[in-house]
């Protein structure tokens, strides 16, 4: 039953802002499988099981959009190929299938949400859900592999740096706009290397990336425009990074920051983690913890809700956004079994 769900949902190609066909399919599936389900006001698929007035709520928050790049959907030797099979329709469908199969414990309501626009900086779906619900426990649907629990995601920041100067003869010793841009980038790299001293884990490091550098000239003025991305550790907020790198900006340059998200790291000793460890062990597996260098909707809702939160789902996240994205259906079924066990043994 659940393999059909994931296969059919992956067939409904749903890049960000074009999720409606997939959302309708998931809502229909949940309605036919014991959920109260509907499309909410921003386009998310939302379904719930259990008592509507239950004192405790478990939120299973996945996302239904994908990055662009349609991959022909096929199943070969138990492997499902297709865009979103890993990131993150596999985890989302595992949530829905497990919640459909589980006997919901008394006192609990289980919500499954397929949020829109996770893969773009708007995060529209998760921001709406963050304002609408106040769960007691939350699992974010992202690939961790069926035997691992994700405890944290790094923060993120994008800085656009523009420097413009009057054109001079190339024989003039003054550095060109392009050279000034390179100087800015080298200063950022040196600063990050200094800040990263004594921090061995990638999760604890500031990771700058030069995403683009372009020069232009109209004969009177020349300019350099650079995009610098940062992956940030919990100790360094986006505002602090903007303040730090502003010191390296040349006079009369412009520095614009956007896409800012703080890192989020969960505690290992929560009822959520304890019960998930037991659920993984109940399937005969040895659990592991993982910290991710990317971001997810955990960065959005984690700070708002302040409840125990992890990310979990089948799949190898190294396949995220790649042309070879694929998911083992056996691992998918294993994740469904883990989640079903977890739901049926909910405690707080």
């Amino acid at each position: 039953m659940s393999a059909e769900l994931i296969t059919e949902l992956v067939k409904r190609y749903s890049p960000s802002e074009q999720e409606s066909d997939a959302v309708r399919y998931l809502v229909d599936w949940m309605t036919k499988n014991g959920f109260e389900a509907s499309v909410d006001t921003v386009g998310n698929a939302v379904g719930w099981r259990g008592a509507p007035d239950a004192p405790y709520t478990l939120m299973l928050l996945g996302h239904i959009d994908t990055v662009r790049g349609e991959i022909p959907v096929r199943v070969e030797d138990g492997i499902l190929y297709g865009r979103g099979s890993v990131d993150a329709k596999g985890p989302l469908c595992a949530f829905a299938a497990a919640a459909a199969q589980a006997v919901i414990p008394e006192g609990w309501r289980v919500i499954v949400a397929g949020a829109v626009e996770e893969e773009v900086t708007s995060s529209k779906g998760a921001r709406h859900i963050a304002k609408t619900y106040t769960p007691d426990l939350c699992i974010i649907g992202e690939p961790s592999s069926a035997d691992r629990i994700t405890l944290g995601y790094k923060g993120r920041l994008i800085v656009e740096y523009t420097y413009t100067r009057t054109v001079s003869h190339t024989a003039h010793p003054e550095p060109s706009a392009g050279a000034m841009g390179v100087e800015f980038w080298k200063s950022v790299q040196d600063w990050a290397a200094h800040e990263n001293e004594n921090h061995e884990r990638y999760f604890d490091q500031i990771m700058p990336t030069l995403q683009s550098i372009n020069t232009s000239s109209d004969g009177f003025n020349e300019a350099v425009t650079m995009m610098v991305g940062f992956r940030l550790p919990p100790r360094q907020g986006p505002e602090e990074v903007v303040a730090a790198v502003s010191r390296f900006a040349a006079p009369n340059s412009e520095l614009r920051a956007y896409g800012a998200e703080k890192a989020f790291q969960s505690d290992k000793n929560t009822p959520l983690v304890r019960n998930m460890l037991a659920a993984i062990r109940a399937q005969g597996e040895r659990p592991g913890f993982v910290y991710k260098t990317g971001t997810s909707d955990m960065n959005i809702v984690g700070a708002v809700w302040g409840c125990p939160i992890i990310a979990y789902g089948p799949g190898d996240s190294r396949l995220d956004h790649t042309p070879n994205e694929h998911l083992s259906l056996a691992e998918y079924e294993q994740a469904v079994a883990v989640l079903r066990h977890f739901i049926e043994h909910l405690s707080y």
């Binding site: 690939p143 629990i149 884990r201 999760f203 062990r281 993982v290 991710k292 260098t293 997810s296 996240s317």
Partner: peptide, 20 residues
């Protein structure tokens, strides 16, 4: 990993990964 009998195992290993 068990209360009766009381049993412990090494805690899950902490790994790093990218994605999302």
């Amino acid at each position: 990993i068990s209360l009766n009998p009381l049993t412990v195992d090494l805690a899950p290993m902490e790994m790093e990964d990218w994605g999302e």
